[in-house]
Design a protein around this nucleic acid. Structure first.
Lengths: 214, 214
DNA sequence: TAGATTGTTAATCGATTAACAATC
DNA sequence: TAGATTGTTAATCGATTAACAATC
């Protein structure tokens, strides 16, 4: 283990590793080699070893990695062993989907603990035990509940305004679902979960000129 | 313009460019330089020029890029000027959200034209003018409706099975929302829109040890 | 014309992969 | 011990950035 700066590419692979390891664990696989992981993920085994080695010596020479042990280590790296509170703004379909989608609170400790909306007729309604709050309460709630991550699921034209309010409230990171580029201070990290980007770039790779009779 | 192989990184930036250009167009901006685009997107202007130059000479020296003209060109590159039919499997919250979310059919021509679910009690229900169909009809519908892209919004343990059926039906690309790594033939392209990855990697960047009294 | 900005080549930077000594 | 596989260094590959001639 050496303390270099960890590249973003490395960090983005960690959740994928974790996902696969959880699956292997469910299948009662106890040990896995970088070669096997590479095969399953379509990655170079050297890359996997190098990625993991940034954070510690997790493997055993001649043996490989202990699945449960590696899961624990990656969870630690990603800070999933502590509870991280999350706020969500925008209770449209997508917001609802995310609130209900507790997959990400099953294995990790990221929890949506507050939900906000700008629409007066949404305020006060219940989503999954949470009462939709007005935007005016955002700052206070973020502070009181130690909320560290904000999720934005509002229409694109409202996204920047919500981001500003999150920043103002002292959030550390933003996950933005709106198809908009956000401007925030450098110390705030924004990740984009904008599926239109994925969908559009997918279209690029389609074959040209499929004859369509119509 | 030169015909090299286009790297994935370049392709992934194109939707972002397009997004911003649409916004500039709405603000009646007629011309934009790579410098301005770079400022707005946090990218190096040389990179933007180089990205665009892969596909053609879209700019004018001493002037910049005509916004509407560049929009048209990028739309062409991404094949958004033809209608591309899309199928969706999984009518949970997320599936509903995507069906209703017609943002991506406002500016581009990717259209969800068929919806499927495995649950008997979902079949026959209506989502946005579309009748939920059983999985048994997937192959035939894909063929009849020239569906080229499949979206997967089922639970992770069902994702691979759905992917197999999409491949079998002759789909060209898959957008997978399930937190699972899919195995498909090389010629099928899979993009992941798995927000848990984004959320988990975001957690990595949080400050350590925020003292939480509780 | 003078100023601005492209398209592109060359230089730099960073990330991936290969190779192998260490060792379980 | 022999075989396997790590952790890590060195080599390669690719992507980003700088620089600048071409030209609007």
């Amino acid at each position: 283990m050496k303390q270099e700066k960890i590249s973003e590419a490395v960090v983005r692979r960690l959740p994928t590793y974790l996902q696969l390891l959880h699956e292997l664990d469910r299948r009662d696989v106890e040990t896995v080699s970088s070669q096997e992981l590479g095969d399953l993920l379509g990655l170079n085994p050297a890359q996997i070893r190098k990625d993991l080695a940034y954070f510690g010596d997790f493997g055993r020479k001649g043996v490989g990695y202990d699945v449960q042990n590696l899961i624990g280590n990656i969870r630690n790296i990603l800070k999933l062993n502590q509870t991280i509170n999350v706020a969500l703004v925008g209770t449209g379909n997508l917001g609802h989907a995310l609130c209900n989608y507790n997959k990400y609170s099953r294995d990790n400790n990221l929890k949506i603990v507050a939900v906000f909306d700008q629409h007066p007729n949404k305020i006060g309604t219940q989503i999954n035990n949470l009462t939709v709050q007005p935007m005016s309460e955002l700052k206070q709630t973020v502070e009181e509940q130690y909320i560290r991550i904000g999720i934005i699921t509002v229409p694109d034209d409202a996204a920047q305004s919500v981001a500003n309010q999150f920043v103002e409230a002292g959030i550390e990171g933003i996950l933005n679902f709106a198809p908009a580029v956000l401007k925030v201070p450098d110390e705030i990290r924004v990740h984009y979960a904008d599926f239109t980007r994925e969908l559009l770039s997918l279209a690029f790779y389609l074959e040209n000129e499929r004859s369509k009779t119509e």
